[in-house]
Amino acid sequence: MPQFDPEISRMVVVEEDQAQISACLQRLMADSGASYSMVIDRAGQILASESDEVRPEMVHLGALIANTYASTQEMARILKEDGFKTLFQEGMKEKIFTETVRGRWLLVVIFDKQSQVGMVKVLARRSSAVLANILDLVERRSTEVNSPRFRQVGKATIDTIDLLFKDDGCSDDE
């Protein structure tokens, strides 16, 4: 099963990367008629998303899909398979197709009955290949980025952590 590179403790996505990923997702949506697409990492964090409308529930969906995918990789291991490369969920209104990108990221496409499953699968596979090249570069560059800016953000974040995570919390119910 592909794993995270332990030497890379972070992935840094800059504007140029984001633009390339978004362009790929937009093309996929336009060609397939899908309503939503996103790229998530294996931790379920959204790297980029494109949508016809704002869908805040996608944070939870990302977590569920990433963990479901990780779970299927464990199934594959038990069955002595190399891995399962896709996931597919079919609902009455919407369908979700997930394709792995290099086994390290996931391309998620949400579509309705206007789109054909076969078409979505073919186009997602093609997009996955394009995204793989982009994300390989992003990953390689992430090891080289050592910006003092991030250290500054880290220092300020620690102050925020102290403020927000007080011993009794700070519920707005009080």
């Binding site: 403790s9 972070r10 840094v12 504007e15 931790a43």
Partner: peptide, 15 residues
């Protein structure tokens, strides 16, 4: 793996 999205100005961590 922490995700730093400079474009979206977001930093994500998983605990």
């Amino acid at each position: 793996m922490a995700l730093i999205n400079v474009a979206a100005r977001e930093i994500h961590g998983k605990i």
